[in-house]
Simulated scan of single mutants.
Amino acid sequence: MTKEKLLLIGAGGFGRMVAERAMLQYDCAFVDDGQAVGTEICGIPVVGGLANLPELRREYGLLVVGIGNNQLRAQVYEKAKALGFAFPNIVAPSAYVSPFAKIGCGCVVLQNACVHNGASVGNSVLLNAGTEIHCDAAVGDYALIYTNSVVRTGATVGSFARIGSNCTICNNATVSDGADIPDCTAVR
């Protein structure tokens, strides 16, 4: 069976982690302005830079942005959306997403992450390994949550927020749009 073709934007550290999961399901290619066309990264070819997206759209219909910078990820996502790309979610086999959770487009859910019943995750959200989004919690568009952080029941993480590693967003707490929460922090 032939796999669908998927463009992975960004071949840096996060992009490579996304690639490890995406290549299980898709025929992948990287787009990265810092790499020469034809270079292979993790066995995946680099086929161009961001300026090449319009012509790459002829061959690729699917795209995921694997860039940790929330603002840059949003810019690329919006440009690709205007070009007509579709955005699958990349979910590691060891992750769990409840069938009663809502998850947007172009999200990445890495190994052992959990999105519980009633949780809501926006578009182009990156959930690192071990992240937990508990019941009825909400995560806004373009947020980034690092390893082993927990968003507890009823909590809200705003759009463009960055939650460091080993953080707890306590029950019903609110993290504002664009907030940058340092590693090992509890937000009450």
Results as ranks from 00 to 15, higher is better:
I90N: 05
A86I: 00
G140V: 07
Q75M: 13
D136Y: 03
I41S: 07
N112C: 02
E78G: 01
A86F: 02
A95G: 10
I169G: 02
S176N: 08
R16F: 10
G154W: 10
N69S: 02
V97Y: 09
A137Q: 03
L50P: 01
G66Q: 03
A11R: 08
L144M: 12
A92H: 13
C167Q: 06
N128T: 03
I67C: 03
A173H: 13
E59A: 13
T185D: 10
G122C: 08
N166Q: 03
C28G: 05
T147L: 04
G140M: 13
V31K: 11
R21T: 14
A22G: 12
T153P: 00
K3I: 07
V91A: 05
K79I: 05
A143H: 06
V47F: 01
H134W: 14
A82G: 08
L62N: 05
E4H: 15
I44D: 05
V109S: 07
D136L: 05
K5D: 11
C114V: 11
E4T: 12
A92N: 09
N123G: 01
D136T: 04
D136S: 14
N123V: 03
G106Q: 12
Q25W: 06
G158I: 04
E40L: 04
A155L: 09
G49D: 03
V108H: 00
N89L: 09
C28I: 10
A92D: 15
I163A: 04
G66T: 01
T39P: 02
R73L: 01
V18Q: 07
I145Y: 02
S124W: 07
A101I: 07
T2I: 06
Q75L: 11
V139N: 07
N69M: 00
K81T: 09
I163H: 02
I169E: 11
K79S: 02
R152E: 14
G106N: 11
V31Q: 08
A119C: 04
V150N: 10
G34V: 03
H116K: 08
T131V: 15
G48N: 02
V151G: 06
L50H: 03
L56C: 03
N112G: 04
D177Y: 06
R73G: 01
Q71I: 08
D183T: 06
N166L: 01
